[in-house]
Design a protein around this nucleic acid. Structure first.
Length: 704
DNA sequence: TAAAAAATCGTTTTT
DNA sequence: CGATTTTTTA
């Protein structure tokens, strides 16, 4: 056991390493305090990633073996960037030895290697939220629980919530009080049974099963404890109970755990993130060294003051004071718009103006609360020929044809994956309708065999039509044919011939409509993606590809250096920064969401989200809100967000109406009754404003 | 069985 | 409003 005193600790000014010279004082401390628990409270824009990468580089420089280091991040993108930056500091060969990835990706890898120990095979399937929802529906059906009374989504959330809190079926059922919870307990139990039967894990299982593995097999735990002598965790404020537990187990022996986070940026409570993990770190690790990175290098004084003012309204937080040596910068524009359409036009205007003054499109980001908001803005940008990239939304991987394609691949890797099987058994149509499917499923259940095995012996299923029998047999034979050669063929070739054999591509080709063509293209994209993957990982099997792709998000492929304005949700924007940030939709009911307004904790989370949004901006921040918005196909007249009045008025420049005197009145609830549209136009039409470039701009009445 | 028509829903945020 | 699911019809 090493102790701190054995460590070579350079005194102030006595830089021991070229690396450390490039850091400020607290960053350097963060980088050189290698042994024991370390908590780094890193404010927004304080060079957190820099401290972390230099720390790892310094470790390697100090002779720690790269493969002893485990760095856990929240997104694949963050992991990739970290690796890249480490490689720049210590060279590719050393950097590639470091284990860096998301919790889910790293744990999935561990589980693939140790699958047998917990009753899985290494070719287990990973179910995303959609898959698991569909299992919940099936379970509710078979248990005879009405989907009217409780929505499958609510049930899935209950199950996932329990898992994130590391609560198993037994415990959940024991603690269940309400009828809802009792029902959820039953569904939970059956759900687990089915996933296991399918040799499948959902996202939450990737964490839980690692804990189970470690609990059941101390020998295996010990191996990984030995292996990961140094563990670093980024975005610690967003870890959940399961992640906390797994990491605690891993680090118990060497106790070299270094976590970085900012409680003010915790925005995943709804997904089970437990802010106590970071708030209680000092209690959990009494010997912990606590460091604060409080100098912000990113934003102007104005932007930072606004952020500080907003977040100070939250009660529960660790004390830190973020400051900056940067200039005051421009005031923050608060733009009041007539409706969401005008809001989009205003955004266009700002982008235009910024580009005219010499900025690139990529310097600008539009960050919204909900994906639905992107539509109106997207239309306006397209109309105006402004290049843009939308992150997230309807994810590529969530599209029907892409999921179908992957389901075929998953099935040949894991025949027990009944979820994937049901998805594609009649896609394209093979003459296997609802009744036949039900008949086969019932038979499989009765005989206690897997769904796939039932398809293989379709000829002996009573009541099944001749035509359906042949279809089922042909289908299962095809799957088996490919399954048998899945380790002989190259993954890309295998995938291509399989998809060819399924007739999926042909179906869309024959359809010929624009939509079908689109789908055809998407399938081709998947296939070329596999080819690309094979080029990069020549030894990887299709099995590995299928498992890795399940953990990929749209965010991971975002090009922040491209030539387009970026549009995404605030959640996706965490960790990014832009010279100009535009935040639309600052209205009550939307931001904060109406659901959060009643609940203090949820309201505070919304506020942290706003804080994240503000602190993405380097130079210029624009806040917009509309007085009339289409929501749910209906017109609503929302009040401006209460968050707006939390910003010191001196930092704001109101545009589009007499916003200053009214801001506080609005947000304290003094907003007038929804007015009729003609009132509105009477009041504002023709009104002229001056924008920051000094030119006359017409805000209303400007129909494009 | 499959395609077309009608009804029903629902909205945070995502690894 | 738009996507998805259920019902009707060929």
């Amino acid at each position: 056991m090493k102790s701190l005193s054995l460590q070579k600790l350079p005194r102030q000014g006595e830089a021991s390493s070229f690396l450390l010279e490039q850091l400020n004082e607290p960053q350097r401390k963060a980088a050189e305090t290698l042994e024991g628990p370390v908590l780094i409270l890193a404010g927004a824009g304080s060079g957190k990633t820099r401290a972390l990468t230099y720390r790892i580089a310094y470790m390697i420089e100090q002779g720690i073996r790269p493969q002893d280091i485990l760095a856990l991040t929240f997104t694949n993108k963050a992991a990739g960037e970290m690796k890249e930056r480490i490689a720049k500091l210590v060279g590719e060969s050393k950097a590639s030895g470091v284990w860096a990835g998301t919790f889910h990706a790293i744990f999935a890898r561990i589980l693939r290697m140790e699958a047998e120990a917990i009753g899985y095979t290494s070719s287990y399937s990973v179910y995303d939220a959609d898959d698991s929802l569909s299992v919940v529906k099936a379970v509710m059906n078979s248990l005879g629980i009405s989907q009217q009374q409780y929505t499958p989504n609510a049930m899935r959330n209950a199950i996932s919530g329990a898992k994130n809190k590391h609560i198993g079926v037994q415990e959940y059922q024991r603690e269940a009080g309400s009828i809802f919870e009792k029902q959820a307990g039953l569904i939970y139990q059956e759900y687990e049974k089915r996933l296991r039967a399918n040799n499948a894990m959902d996202f939450d299982d990737l964490l839980l099963n690692v804990i189970r593995l470690f609990e059941m097999r101390p020998d295996i735990l010990q191996r990984y404890q030995e292996r990961f002598r140094y563990v670093l965790i980024d975005e610690y404020q967003d870890t959940n109970k399961a992640q906390y537990t797994a990491v605690a187990m891993l680090t118990r022996v060497h106790n070299n755990i270094c976590v970085v986070g900012d409680d003010a940026q915790s925005i995943y409570r709804w997904r089970g993130a437990d802010i106590r993990n970071i708030l209680d770190f000092e209690r959990d690790y009494p010997q912990a060294v606590v460091l604060r990175l409080e100098q912000n290098y990113r934003s102007t004084k104005t932007i930072l003051s606004a952020a500080n003012a907003v977040i100070s309204n939250n009660a529960d937080q660790l004390k830190k004071e973020l400051w900056t040596a940067n200039d005051d910068g421009e005031l923050i524009d608060v733009v009041r718009c007539r409706d969401d359409r005008e809001e989009a036009e205003q955004i266009v205007k700002y982008i235009r103006q910024e580009v005219r003054s010499g900025k690139e499109y990529r310097d600008i980001a539009v960050l919204y609360r909900t994906n639905a908001q992107s539509q109106a803005i997207e239309d306006a940008l397209r109309r105006e020929n402004i290049p843009y990239t939308i992150v997230g939304g309807v994810s590529f991987y969530k599209r029907k044809e892409v999921k179908d394609t992957l389901a075929y691949l998953k099935l040949i890797v894991n025949e027990r994956d009944s979820e994937s099987l049901q998805r594609i058994v009649n896609e394209p149509p093979r003459g296997l309708g609802k009744t036949s499917l039900q008949l086969i499923a019932d038979y499989a259940e009765r005989e206690g065999i897997s769904l796939f095995d039932a398809y293989c012996i379709a000829e002996s299923i009573p009541g099944l039509q001749k035509r359906a029998q042949t279809a089922a047999l042909d289908f299962s034979a095809m799957i088996r044919r490919f399954s048998g050669v899945r380790n002989q063929l190259r993954p890309d070739e295998l995938a291509r011939t399989l998809i060819d054999a399924t007739g999926l591509l042909r179906m869309y080709e024959e359809d010929g409509s624009d939509e079908a063509l689109d789908r055809w293209n998407n399938i081709q994209r998947v296939l070329s993606h596999i080819a690309e993957y094979h080029d990069k990982n020549p030894d990887a099997t299709l099995e590995q590809y299928v498992q890795e792709i399940a953990l990929l998000s749209d965010m991971d492929n975002v090009d922040t250096h491209g030539k387009a304005v970026l549009m995404m949700t605030l959640h996706s924007a965490k960790g990014l920064e832009f010279p100009m940030v535009i935040l639309p939709g600052l209205e009550r009911g939307l931001y904060p969401l109406s659901k959060a307004e009643q609940n203090k904790d949820e309201l505070e989370e919304e506020r942290r989200l706003f804080y994240v949004g503000i602190t993405r901006a380097e130079k210029k921040l624009v806040l917009l809100h509309a007085e009339k918005r289409y929501r749910f196909g209906e017109i609503s007249y929302p009040m401006p967000s209460g968050f707006l009045s939390e910003i010191t008025p001196e930092l704001l420049r109101p545009i589009g109406g007499k916003a200053i005197p009214e801001l506080s009145a609005w947000s304290s609830g003094g907003f007038r009754k929804p007015r009729h549209e003609h009132d509105f136009i009477d009041e504002y039409s023709g009104q002229k404003m001056t924008d920051s470039s000094g030119e006359k701009v017409r805000f209303i009445d400007e129909d494009v």
